Amino acid sequence: MASSAVSKFKQFFALDGTMPADDSYMAEDNAYEERSSYGYQPTHAAHSDYTPARRSPQPSVVPVDVRGFSTVRHIGEAFRDGNIVVFTLSELPRDEARRVVDYAAGLCHGLRGRMQKLPRTSFGLIPEGVEIETYELEDALEF
């Protein structure tokens, strides 16, 4: 009985030396014809709903009122557009505030920015190459 379970496991994950005969899976995708400096560029990308963010030459400080983890997209959108984002977590439960901080840290890492701790469970997200004083970030929290 155990050997049949092991053989079924091997067969399911194609560890028994057989591969499923699915030609559509193995066929080449012709959508990747154009090349860019980063590799293949799909030809259908120009027709998608995605519009790249436009970075402003002078970033503004955007205070975001975080009322729960469901509102963190406002942090991401403002930071992705190249703005400085400040937010406070004093109204959130500890576990939800931790999720927001983790999300913000991931944004900073992915977009090469930095995160600065401010007083009263507040934080500032600063894009790469932008210099700002701490008091300017604190002033923006007065929303």
Rank of each mutant, 00 (worst) to 15 (best):
E136V: 06
G106C: 06
N30C: 07
P52I: 02
E138L: 12
G82A: 01
L107P: 00
A21G: 06
L89I: 04
V101W: 07
K8G: 07
D49S: 15
P119K: 03
V85E: 05
V100N: 05
V86M: 08
A53F: 02
A27I: 03
S70E: 13
M26W: 13
G82K: 06
P63G: 05
Q11E: 11
E96L: 07
A27V: 00
F87C: 03
G129S: 00
L118Y: 02
R73C: 08
M26F: 14
K8P: 08
Y135C: 14
Y38L: 10
E142Q: 15
Y40C: 03
V64P: 05
V66W: 09
S90I: 10
S122R: 09
R80F: 09
F69I: 15
D49C: 14
E142L: 15
F87E: 05
V66M: 03
L125E: 02
L141P: 01
V6E: 14
G110R: 15
H109L: 09
V86D: 00
V100T: 03
I132H: 05
R67Q: 15
S90G: 01
R120M: 14
A2S: 08
A21R: 05
L89M: 06
Y38R: 10
Q116N: 04
S24E: 06
G129T: 00
F143A: 12
Y40M: 10
S24N: 04
S3W: 13
R99S: 10
Y40S: 11
P52V: 02
D22G: 00
Q58S: 12
A31W: 13
R94G: 07
D65C: 13
G106N: 10
P93L: 12
L125N: 05
Q41L: 12
Y38P: 00
G129R: 05
F143Y: 14
K10I: 03
H44I: 10
A140F: 02
E131Q: 11
K8E: 11
P63Q: 00
L137M: 05
V6A: 12
A46W: 09
R94V: 15
A78G: 00
P20Q: 07
G17T: 02
Q58M: 11
D23E: 15
V6T: 13
Y103E: 01
V101K: 11
V101H: 04
F79D: 02
R80H: 14
V66R: 10
V61N: 01
G76A: 06
I84W: 06
G76S: 10
Y135P: 10
E128D: 07
L141E: 03
M1E: 12
F9L: 10
